[in-house]
Computed example of a mutant assay.
Amino acid sequence: MDLNHRSILLTGAGTGIGRAMALELARYAPRLALVGRRSEPLEEVAALVREKGGEAVVVPADLTADGAPAQVVAAARDRLGGIDVLINNAGNVRAGRLEAIEESEVLAQIALNLTAPILLTRAALPALRASGEALVVNVSSGFGLLGSPFYATYGATKAGIAHFGEALRRELHGEGVHVLNVFPGATDTPMMDSSDARAEHGFDYESPEEVAAAAVAGMIGDEISVVRGASMDRMLTRNREDPAAVDQMLAAGKDELEKVVAGHSSL
């Protein structure tokens, strides 16, 4: 896909991977609608995008509020003159044993990680179809491909958005709207600040800039998926061929993992 001068709606744009994607996309002189809960970081990113030659507007919103996805899409379409690319990047996490997580924390992850991007995509489809060459990008997670203890709800939402993307890609095949799923591994973002998981626990961190560069390359290359994480391919192969062996491998470090991720929350 030619990204030059495209109208792009990007959620979760104020920090982390979203911020890095906005700056990576800025080199293509896009028109960006930057969406997030807080105006201040969005304004900072918008200023950096403009310095790099792009255009940017800020759309503060809680995507989990009633009617918010449709309102955000309408605002972006009106201010950008259309939508060529929708990037569903906003997300949250609450790790820990399932019975130790509050019901409200379960629902909050489902609302932002799964329900909101589905409703955003639904609302954006008329504008995307009108583009003639459009793209939906869903930022999932390595945990959407490989189930990890203490990330049951988070993993379920990320597997859900990936499956949604795959199904939608096939639904829209040949209709001018492509869908790309991106699966970051552990990424050094503010979302991970409350986690004590490190390399010895299986968390090999990339920078958000590395993930953003790979995602944008996948967008340009019309890829179906972008999978990050140095060991992810090996783990996925092993999990497919002998999932019981992966169970045993993860069990060996389960007690320590529970300790280091018990406080991991971005809610």
Rank of each mutant, 00 (worst) to 15 (best):
G229Q: 06
E258L: 06
L120R: 09
V35P: 15
E171N: 08
H173C: 09
L250H: 09
A75Q: 15
A111P: 10
S148T: 11
I87H: 01
T189L: 09
R97M: 08
I118L: 15
E43N: 14
D66S: 12
P184I: 01
G142C: 04
L145E: 09
G81A: 10
A127R: 01
E51L: 07
R169F: 05
G132F: 07
T11P: 14
A197F: 02
E44V: 08
G185Y: 11
A134E: 11
A65N: 03
M21A: 12
V72F: 08
L125W: 06
S140V: 08
P60N: 01
V177K: 00
A61D: 01
G165L: 03
V246A: 01
T153E: 00
R129Q: 11
A68E: 09
D84T: 04
L23N: 03
Q248S: 14
L180S: 03
V216G: 05
P69E: 03
D255F: 04
T157A: 12
V139C: 04
S131K: 04
E102N: 09
S141L: 03
V58P: 05
D66G: 07
A20F: 03
A167K: 02
G155N: 01
A90W: 01
A156F: 07
I161A: 05
R198W: 01
L114T: 05
T237C: 04
G174D: 00
I87F: 00
E166D: 14
A68M: 08
R169P: 08
G160F: 04
R31G: 15
H173T: 10
K158Y: 09
M249W: 13
A156Q: 13
R129W: 10
G155S: 05
A47Y: 02
A13T: 13
L80N: 08
G263V: 09
E99F: 10
S265Y: 11
A26Q: 01
A111K: 02
E206V: 06
A47L: 11
R19C: 09
E102L: 14
A26T: 00
G176L: 02
R50G: 06
A244H: 14
G229N: 05
D222A: 14
A95N: 09
L125M: 09
I224D: 15
A230S: 14
A100S: 15
I17W: 02
R238Y: 02
R240Y: 11
R228L: 15
V58M: 01
L23I: 03
E99D: 12
Y28Q: 13
E171I: 07
R238S: 14
V261M: 02
G18N: 13
T15V: 06
M235V: 00
A47S: 15
Y205I: 05
